[in-house]
Every structure is written in structure tokens, then in C-alpha cells.
Design a protein around this nucleic acid. Structure first.
Lengths: 350, 350
DNA sequence: CTGTTAGCGCGTTCAT
DNA sequence: ATGAACGCGCTAACAG
């Protein structure tokens, strides 16, 4: 690898001319086409590579974006990876580099934070479980001139931290509306997130269906066990159901597993839907319907917003719409008659 | 954020002294403890952050490691994410930053390659599907003084590119031995990778079992469909089996799904095992046994090896041993009597 | 159209 | 025990 100086010497021109040519910064006047070509050829020949640190030092621009990811998503949901890939793809398309850092709690975040201040990145994207306690740190990062965009369900701190959200009320509503449209009348819910639960209630109420407390189980986690506990609770209450809106695909998977073991037919007798459109939904014995939070797209969006901020354009939080992914666990096998009729409009599949 | 100069001015000392103190480079003589403390306090007060580009320019060290990941693993296997997390954790523990880049083919790799030469990173880890065509590019990167470590099943180019491998023959062998130890005598195999297939044959032969061609299906992909085709082929041949060694968890999942639908009891009548210990193995209706390729650990290992190379220590390729993760699909429900007796020694679970 | 000059912030001699 | 001076490789004014 060589420096600008090497190619300048080779052609007996000045370093700055080489710099201008190679960066297309020739101003209005332009340069001698011959020397331009000569410089370009020499650069090629000498395998010239810009020293990014030197350029960064001179310009104050790193062409690096940080992605701090608070571990998110139950095992196998692929949520983290979807965000990373979305951000990665969008940055690559812009010639920006991605600096990735996972963190578990506020402490780990703080430990990683100095790195941010080090002029090591132009901007920062923070994703995953939101931590209100981190708002001050993030504000400080922004005060240091490093814009931040978050990927949380909802904005953390108003417009100070632009966010790429996803409407969790809609998640619950879309899932529930889907089951209602398919004819379910006694729909159970495993509540973890209250926004999703409220979407569930909204949909019931909009359809004139009663909210049955005995079909509403409050869980603390998104894992399979919590779904099993929910089923046990419904049993204990002697409550029958013809549909279940879970709050994760892992819960949905657990529900389907238990039902199958009991000889209950899914979706004929009970329809089941989860959240996050995890990869395994596609090859579960009964392919699992789900509501996607569109993490890949949101990662991409976050990059766009960050670039806007870096370009000085004003940016406001956005709220992406979740997307219904109907599969076998609600609409049955495609070969048995295709997608369920009476699909509610609004949330297009894939 | 402030520069060394700011704190030097604050205390009326020289920039270089501040630099030495803050970096612990005081030589043998040391410095006045008072000024040392004063400098440290001032650094704290002024929120001093080293400008990493400037430091990199001066020292030639970036404290950045690149991770180039060729998309790997069937959907939901979590393989890519495991590698990223392993690398990330190891780097974080060493104060190194992680620069991540996904690529799909050789072209995308080449497109990303210039970034490497740009003195943007101290070393490079390449993981995922191996591409022989990339060897020249990687050699060039190394010639430019940037050491490379790969994470592939087996080394790409001898010791020129140190590799963190995983013994794929052992994968097939361990899986097959496991089924044999559990009493299976007619074990089918879905072949994709030939090393794994050869491990399958080794295990059969070591146990004195015949290799039955009618129970050996050659597939092209690791996906669910290829497993379904395998089952169809076994049916067509009228070949009965009491165990199946698949080459991915997705294949294993598909096998179990089909068998359950047919009313075949897993693992009582047929035992099934896959590869990669995907997250969903844990919450499949019949929890799936698998052989792990230990991607997280290998990511960590790759970082260690890279650090060794950067420190000038000689490094050789290693081959990690796959690990058996027995679950319900081979040993049955734990509550029904625990782990299968006669477990072969050698491959410890988790 | 091209060259000169002056930094960017830090680390490292070498003096003092 | 401390400081002055230089250079890392590049960009950006400003001259010519």
C-alpha cells in the first residue's frame, strides 16, 4: 500500500493535486485530463489506499457509524441479527463502516460509551431493549456532536433522540383482528407487553367481542414456559378458546406444541399467532403465523435518518407499521385452500 | 470532549507530559506524583477522550478488528450471530473495536476489501462459507501487513491463513455414534457435506453396522425440503429406519414434523439428530438433539489467535471438536428417565 | 490548472 | 522530572 506522496513523487506533481484528483475535489476549474488519468493510473499501479485515520484526522469525518445493541429478542427470534443486517446493508451501500457493540445492561453501555466520545464514529445507532437510565448518557453523546438514532418500540426522550419505532398496539391489534377475521370468537392472550395487550383489547372491542379475563394471562417473560403457564391457567379456569394471540413466536411455538400433544388440531380447532416473524416460523411442524416488527427495514431506516442528521437535515421519529405474516397456524395449509378468506385489509403480507 | 492540549493548558504543563502520564509511558524515572494526580483529575474534569484517529495515525495501531462474514447457516440456525457474538465479546474484553461487514459472494468481498487495506483495521477475521477464489485477495491483505484469521470448517490455504476449524467428520461420527449407543441399528443419513457423511460411515463401520445405500440420500441443500425429499426417497425404496442423522437442524425439524404427522413416535420409534444446535432446538415440539459446531467459542478463539499474530507470536490453525447436545428427539423426555444410558464417552454435552 | 503552507491530535525521540 | 520539536498521511486554504 502506498501514500499520496508515493504517487506524487512518481509523477512529479504535488501531493495536494493528487489528493484533489483522487477525491474529485477539483473545484470549478478542473484539471488537465492527462494528469488526471496519469494520477489515476499511478494510484491503481501503486495500490494506493487512503489511510482512513489520517483522512479522519484531517476532515473530522470518520465514515464510521456505531451500532450499539442491547441484547434483544428471545433466543431464535433473529431480532438482533435482523437489525444488524439492516444497518449493515444500508451502511455498506453508502460506503460507511459499521462498528458493532453488544451490551447487556446500563453498566456495559457506559463502559462502551467512552469509545463513542473518542471521535471514533460520526454517529450512533442504539437498538434493543430501551433503558430510560441511558438517556442522560445518550444526551451527552449528542452534546459531543455525535448524533444518535434509536431503534426502540417507542421514542425514549421525545424528539431529542429520533427513534425508528414499531407500533406495538398495532401488533396486538393486527394479530387479534386476523383471528377474528378467521372466525375466532374466544381468543386468549398471553400478556407481557401492555401495548400489545391493549391492541388485543381494541380489536376485540371493535368486533363487539367481550374481553374475557379468564382468557387473559399475565406473563413476565416472552419465553416458552410462560406460554405453558398461560395454558395451565386457562385450563384451571376451565376456559375454552378457539384462538390464542401470543406475544412471541417462542410462546406461539410452545402453545402449538402443547396443543398438538393434546390432540387439538391447529388451526382447525385453535388458531395461534405469535410476534416477530422468527426464522423458525417457516419450518415449525405447523408453520407459525406471526406479526413482524420489520427489524431489518427499521435498521435500514435508522441509517437513513442518521445520514440525514449528519447532513444537517432535520429528522423526526417514525413509527413503522407491523406486518402480518399469515401461515399455517392460523390459515391452514396453503395446499388445502390457500390463504384464509376474509383477510382484513391494511397489513399486507411480506 | 477535550484534547491533550486543553488539559496541558489547564495545568500549565506540556502536552507530551500529559500524554505520557495518561498512557503510563513514564519510562524508568517516573513523574511527580502530584502532577500525575493533577493531570488525571483534569482529564476527568474535562472529559478527556483520546482522539482515536489521531492516535492511530501516530502509532499505526487502530485497535480495530474487522469481521467479514460470508452469509452462513440456514435460516434460524443462528450461526452467523453466534460468530459475531463470540468475536464481539472477545474483542470487547480486550478494548478492541469490531468492524463488521457481511458479504454474499466474491464480488461483494472484493468490493469491501479496499476498506481493509485502508489502515482501517489491525487485523481481519473472515468467517462463513469458504471461497477458494478469495485466497489471493486475502493473501494480498496479509502482504499489506494485516494478519488474517479465518473461521471455516477447514483451513483455506495451509498455514498461510490460520483457521479456527471444526471437524466435520467428527460431526457425522458423533451424531451417528450417539444413535448407535441408543440402540439404533438402521440409521438413515441425509448427505450434503461429504465429510459429515464420511463420519457417519465411520461410525457405522466401527459398530459393525452395514452401510445401507437405500438409507443414504444425497441432497444439495441444508433446508427442510431436502429432508422431505430424503424421506420420500426412503419410502420409495421401502427402507425402514430407526434413526436419522440429518446435516442441519432445519432438516431434523422437517424430519420430525413429517414423522409426527405420520403418527411415528419420536424418539421411541425413530431417533433424529441435526447439526448446529440452533436456538429453536430448545423449543421444538420434540426438542431436537444436535451436534454443535461451537461457533461462539470459535469466534472467541479467532480473536485470540489474531491477537497472538499481532503480538508477533506464531499461530497455527486449530480444529475444534464438535459437541453433542442430546435432547428429546434422541433421548426422550428428561422427565421420563433422564439421559439415555450407554452414552458414548468423548463428546461431553454442553 | 497546479503548488505551497498550515494544521488535524497524538506519540516519540532527544534535550534540558 | 519535564518540555520542544518533529512526523504520522491527509485535506483545505490560499497563492500563483
Amino acid at each position: 500500500m502506498s501514500r499520496l506522496q508515493d504517487i506524487a513523487r512518481e509523477l512529479d506533481v504535488s501531493v495536494s493535486l493528487v489528493s484533489k484528483v483522487l477525491n474529485g475535489r477539483l473545484g470549478t476549474t478542473g484539471a488537465n485530463p492527462k494528469t488526471v488519468r496519469a494520477i489515476e493510473r499511478a494510484a491503481q499501479k501503486l495500490h494506493y489506499r487512503k489511510h482512513s485515520s489520517a483522512a479522519a484526522l484531517a476532515t473530522g469525518r470518520q465514515n464510521v457509524v456505531g451500532l450499539f445493541l442491547h441484547s434483544i429478542g428471545v433466543e431464535g427470534s433473529g431480532v438482533s441479527e435482523a437489525i444488524v443486517r439492516g444497518v449493515s446493508a444500508a451502511l455498506a451501500a453508502r460506503g460507511q463502516r459499521l462498528m458493532l457493540q453488544y451490551f447487556l445492561g446500563a453498566d456495559e453501555f457506559r463502559a462502551a460509551c467512552p469509545e463513542v466520545g473518542r471521535h471514533a464514529m460520526d454517529g450512533l445507532i442504539v437498538g434493543g431493549v430501551h433503558h430510560h437510565e441511558l438517556v442522560p448518557e445518550l444526551a451527552q453523546v449528542q452534546d459531543a456532536g455525535i448524533p444518535v438514532v434509536t431503534i426502540h418500540d417507542q421514542p425514549l426522550a421525545g424528539e431529542a433522540l429520533p427513534n425508528v419505532g414499531s407500533d406495538q398496539v398495532a401488533v396486538g391489534r393486527i394479530a387479534t383482528e386476523h383471528l377474528i377475521a378467521l372466525g375466532c370468537r374466544r381468543i386468549a392472550h398471553v400478556k407481557v407487553d401492555s401495548h400489545r395487550a391493549s391492541g388485543y383489547h381494541q380489536a376485540l372491542s371493535a368486533a363487539g367481542l367481550p374481553a374475557r379475563p379468564e382468557l387473559f394471562h399475565v406473563a413476565r417473560r416472552y419465553d416458552a414456559r410462560s406460554a405453558e403457564e398461560a395454558l395451565a391457567a386457562f385450563d384451571a379456569a376451565g376456559a375454552a378458546f378457539d384462538g390464542i394471540v401470543a406475544q412471541s413466536d417462542q410462546q406461539a411455538a410452545a402453545v402449538v406444541s402443547v396443543l398438538l400433544r393434546r390432540g387439538v388440531r391447529v388451526p382447525d380447532q385453535v388458531k395461534v399467532i405469535g410476534v416477530d416473524d422468527s426464522p423458525f416460523c417457516e419450518f415449525f411442524p405447523v408453520r407459525l403465523s406471526s406479526v413482524s416488527n420489520e427489524h431489518f427495514a427499521r435498521g435500514r431506516r435508522a441509517v437513513e435518518m442518521l445520514m440525514d442528521r449528519l447532513a444537517g437535515r432535520p429528522v423526526a421519529s417514525v413509527q413503522e407499521l407491523p406486518v402480518l405474516r399469515p401461515r399455517e397456524s392460523t390459515i391452514g395449509d396453503a395446499s388445502e385452500g390457500g390463504r384464509g378468506a376474509g383477510e382484513p385489509a391494511g397489513a399486507p403480507p411480506a
